[in-house]
Write a protein that binds this DNA or RNA. Sequence first.
DNA 1: TTATTGTCTGAAACCGGTTTCAGGAAACAC
DNA 2: GTGTTTCCTGAAACCGGTTTCAGACAATAA
Lengths: 341, 341
Amino acid sequence: MNDFSAAQRSRVTMLDVAEHAGVSKASVSRFIGDDRALLSDAIARRIEQSIAELGYRPNQMARGLKRGRTRLIGMLVADIRNPYSIAVMHGVETACRRHGYSLVVCNTDRDDEQERQHLALLRSYNIEGLIVNTLGHHRDELDELKREMPLVLVDRKVDGLDGDMVGLNNPQAIEMALEHLQQRSYRDVLMVTEPYDGTSSRIERVGSFQKQISQREDMRGAVLETGSSLANDLQTFLNTSDSGPKALFCANGVAALACTLALREIGCQLFEDVGLIALDDLDWYPLVGSGITALAQPTEEIGERAFECLLKRLRGDDEVARTLDFAPVLIERGSTRRQAE
Amino acid sequence: MNDFSAAQRSRVTMLDVAEHAGVSKASVSRFIGDDRALLSDAIARRIEQSIAELGYRPNQMARGLKRGRTRLIGMLVADIRNPYSIAVMHGVETACRRHGYSLVVCNTDRDDEQERQHLALLRSYNIEGLIVNTLGHHRDELDELKREMPLVLVDRKVDGLDGDMVGLNNPQAIEMALEHLQQRSYRDVLMVTEPYDGTSSRIERVGSFQKQISQREDMRGAVLETGSSLANDLQTFLNTSDSGPKALFCANGVAALACTLALREIGCQLFEDVGLIALDDLDWYPLVGSGITALAQPTEEIGERAFECLLKRLRGDDEVARTLDFAPVLIERGSTRRQAE
DNA sequence: TTATTGTCTGAAACCGGTTTCAGGAAACAC
DNA sequence: GTGTTTCCTGAAACCGGTTTCAGACAATAA
């Protein structure tokens, strides 16, 4: 019968170090913390040696208890399998590490109840700050949390919650996409998005799209949500009598995958019959047909800046809520390489 | 000037609840824990109401301190941007949640020093168990850790560390791939792998490949590592005078991406000039050419079983180290749809 | 009736750290 | 030589919980 709890209990503790070095716990604590300056060289050396000899490692849980600083940052992610989320998360983690923080990631799988539970969980672990990339229902809980710790929204806005926000400049992205499509002489554009689902960035993108395309005289637009009838819907779009060359505009990477699969299903000759531009730049875009034109988001940077926002707040910054909007980068590939007229 | 630390300190504590309900801390603790049976109905009701009224949430850090149970599981991932790791992680997380545990993921970015730091970190947070998907250098630290808590290796073996292991049945996977290629009458197979890098599963796969292909009389094999000269190397392979139809066998998803990009670079007509089968099944495989044939790993299940292994150990199981090998599933697509002769 | 058992409860010690506070020793001023 | 100041140190309280232990009380047995 193994007994890990006994093993755990046998770990070297601060008291062990103190006794071994013949000093008090307080001195050891000072050595561990930032107060080393308070100690005489002689004592510091003794402690240092004892720590090395015993292989002592301070217990962060215990530290966090009294100190209130756990050096833990929480991140709530709606869908951990979405490449965008992964990339942002990687950025956050990098920044965390650079500043001595650790990241606890909770995946809600787009489930409201799980969001609630994870929120409670993170709170109970005394995280110091929270990065949110979910729908942010449970407004009351978020509000409460926001009083306890700084909070940054990534790629989402939550109604009535005035936290910092980091994400894409959606109007600018739409503008860039439409400009590119127009230059390439596409005239009839179908924006394909995942179901809105209350996701603010999706709503924003579609809104911007509709507004901007109506302002371009020679272009026409429509919007479609992914779903079981996607292939049919695309077929219909392609069949309607022309007002000009057609293109699809996928509002994110997941939609791009769904579209490309659907186009293949209906036997559409990609990029001859229809143009395609997609938000996000996934690693397989170059591989499909002659490549999918992308508007890449600076995901790593978004993640890093999200953490830095948090850090500023933790250090006492109390400016009004900030919004950081990043510009996408156009990466042209074969899927929009129609010649300008 | 905001003051989150003050806010944090103002959280409702167990003492608040106790006073509000007119009982002792001990009783509240019993209510919170599993000892509710010890309490009289009257007291339990009073506590329950006070908790609801004050919105009390127990502090997990403090609980973990005395109890030794943090309900935290750690996971060490070599590369969080590898789809395989993500999928496994998702499985682990699902299983964790089902059993009331939470997951702390640390990404080492394939860096040994980061592995060491993260290991120390996880330990200092009193995690109860560890899932390792890294190179596992720092054998000494892992050994030490293994005495304190159960440990499961995923897709890796670490020399001399006799922990539980969960992963793919590599010989069987190779066997299935070669059998399939042979049936489709490919004769000359190049296995493409990421640099070995000490990763046991890569070494195992290559080893199995070399052994098995030498046993098939009519087939010939070679091995290639991805890298800057990949395109050239593939060109060379394709140019060598034939012993028969050629195929590539990518040892994982990352290699598959690299290969497909390289083939495109050298203008190779995928799947007419050369067959392709890849381990792992990524969501874009169907989109490339006529689709890439895959050997899918049951990643979710691998993750879940890894956690369950841990759980068994935590509950006192002390059998010898176990190895769980999963079988892959063949998903045939256009890239090997050469007619049998 | 008294002795015994069992059930519920709270005081206090404890987990492993941090922090306050008071005091001793050395350094400085007068 | 005394009076201050400064520097370093340890005892003890504290963080927010859990757990042990002993006592109060009711219920049962003798």
